[in-house]
Design a protein around this nucleic acid. Sequence first.
DNA 1: TAGATTGTTAATCGATTAACAATC
DNA 2: TAGATTGTTAATCGATTAACAATC
Lengths: 205, 205
Amino acid sequence: MVSKAIPDIVVGRLPLYLRALSFLAAEGRQVTSSQELGQKLGISAAQIRKDLSHFGEFGKQGTGYDIKYLSEQLRRILKVTEEHEVALVGAGDLGHALVHYDGFAGKGFRISVVFDNNPQKIGRRLGTFEILDSESIETIIADRGIEVAIVAVPPNAAQEVVDALVRAGVKAILNYAPITVKVPEGVQVQYIDPVIHLQRMAYYL
Amino acid sequence: MVSKAIPDIVVGRLPLYLRALSFLAAEGRQVTSSQELGQKLGISAAQIRKDLSHFGEFGKQGTGYDIKYLSEQLRRILKVTEEHEVALVGAGDLGHALVHYDGFAGKGFRISVVFDNNPQKIGRRLGTFEILDSESIETIIADRGIEVAIVAVPPNAAQEVVDALVRAGVKAILNYAPITVKVPEGVQVQYIDPVIHLQRMAYYL
DNA sequence: TAGATTGTTAATCGATTAACAATC
DNA sequence: TAGATTGTTAATCGATTAACAATC
């Protein structure tokens, strides 16, 4: 017998809970409640309790949740207690911004290698990284056992890069290229495309 | 009597349909079907037809959808036939990448003004833009009637920037800062936070 | 104890899918 | 015409919410 799978939509909210908890912790708070968390996130208290109940019992009646404890539990559930090495493909403006982004620190991810296919860029530096040839994605990522990658290349190159990453054994891809890519079962892809978000909001203008 | 509101989740898929149609058009294709679109997007054909049916009848039995016509209709529905001026707040690495991003062209948005609160940056250039003082957000955005903004500032400054944007009359905000911000009813906010996406995928590693 | 808040159940709500008549 | 595909209805599925006993 297999334990019931957790709905993906529930998994998708856990990082938001963790983020809100981090802010509360940074304010020196010790304890919170499903009501407070919900208010901060625009989510109902019942939903937060229900979501958490998929994974165990983390609160105390009458009191609420210990912020540090719940954070630890969420990090464990999300597998972000240790930092995952992340391969970045694409050393353009966006790659530059990502390499210098300080928001990954302590959140479970650390960019540790950078690739580009432009001969003008290969061998040069991006931040503290030497830019490696995209041709070497498969060998290097496989050798280092990297499972997470960020794709920040032009749309016409994205599928090809994704294919190489998949062959290298990458299991989670954050794709900034504005195309839907094909990946085999068992490989996760998430998309970031500002145009999609802007168009969605434009409907309500 | 009020016509039934369109579910937000439906509105959220329209930009994906439009993006897929743009790619098909770029390949020189004239006609597509709900089945083909669904396959490309990982969405069921029935759902696509259902989504579109909220807005009218755009296809032809036995044939499918004229790509150019459906694209036009979706652009009209999403209000992206004309380009909206976009205010960018934050002239850091991310702001730099956004100003140089070529993916906005022809999609309904054009960054047209850039703000930062750093005296070292105010008055300097970012791409073709002079960086303006964040203090002037309210007057300049209100004067120019800008309704869309992108927030690319550190988390501790984000709520304050959002408040100024709201006072200036902005109705749609794309927030890259990793915090949930408070806005009044009638103001749309969308979030982009790579950490949230990465953590969500990490669960499946 | 009294008040507060959890974890869980059952009810409600809404979204997705299957199926098919209409028709190009 | 025969085959294909739409738009729509009804059924199914899944997610959210309300309510409350348990209990800190």
